Computed example of a mutant assay.
Amino acid sequence: MTMETVWAGPEHTDGALGEGVIGYDVEAPDGSVGTVIRLSPVPGFDHLVIDAGVWKFGRSVVVPAGMVTGVDDAARVIRVGCTKDQIKDAPRFERDQDTGDLFYLRQLGAYYEALSAGQG
């Protein structure tokens, strides 16, 4: 996976991960991650902001759209290809942080790019 593909989401029923997925549950291979609360406002950096709830101490987490492996509209579930621990270990996102912070997005992209290369 390259830095560009980290941010490229899968095709969805609308052609992309659109506003319709807000409120969907997010599932990692090892369990629930949380609920989508918003999407990226930054062109070229598609990502999900997820309310991770209790397992992340009330924090939100950010997962690049390229980590999405599937969307089940009937069940209102988005599946991601990284584990909960990998998401927890990603560069920390603060709930009030601007998701348009390019420095943060580049750090996050590098982290997930390394994961996909087997270095994470």
Rank of each mutant, 00 (worst) to 15 (best):
4 E>W: 12
4 E>K: 15
5 T>N: 15
8 A>S: 04
9 G>I: 05
9 G>A: 05
10 P>L: 10
10 P>I: 10
10 P>Y: 02
12 H>W: 09
12 H>S: 15
12 H>G: 13
13 T>L: 14
13 T>Q: 07
15 G>M: 04
16 A>Q: 14
19 E>P: 13
21 V>R: 00
22 I>P: 03
27 E>N: 11
28 A>Y: 02
29 P>R: 00
30 D>E: 12
31 G>R: 09
32 S>H: 05
36 V>P: 01
37 I>H: 08
37 I>E: 02
38 R>H: 01
38 R>D: 15
38 R>V: 03
40 S>I: 08
40 S>G: 07
41 P>N: 04
42 V>W: 08
42 V>Y: 04
43 P>D: 10
43 P>Q: 12
46 D>N: 12
46 D>R: 11
47 H>L: 09
48 L>V: 07
48 L>F: 07
51 D>S: 10
52 A>D: 03
54 V>C: 11
55 W>H: 12
56 K>R: 12
60 S>Q: 08
63 V>G: 04
63 V>L: 04
66 G>V: 06
67 M>L: 13
67 M>I: 15
67 M>Y: 04
68 V>Y: 01
71 V>S: 02
73 D>H: 14
73 D>C: 02
73 D>P: 10
76 R>Y: 05
76 R>T: 08
78 I>W: 00
78 I>S: 00
81 G>S: 03
81 G>R: 12
82 C>Y: 11
86 Q>D: 08
87 I>Y: 01
89 D>R: 12
89 D>K: 15
90 A>C: 02
92 R>C: 07
93 F>Y: 15
93 F>A: 00
94 E>W: 06
96 D>G: 07
97 Q>G: 06
99 T>C: 10
100 G>Q: 03
105 L>E: 03
106 R>G: 05
107 Q>E: 11
108 L>N: 09
112 Y>S: 04
112 Y>H: 05
115 L>D: 12
117 A>I: 05
119 Q>M: 08
119 Q>S: 08
119 Q>W: 09
120 G>P: 12
120 G>F: 04
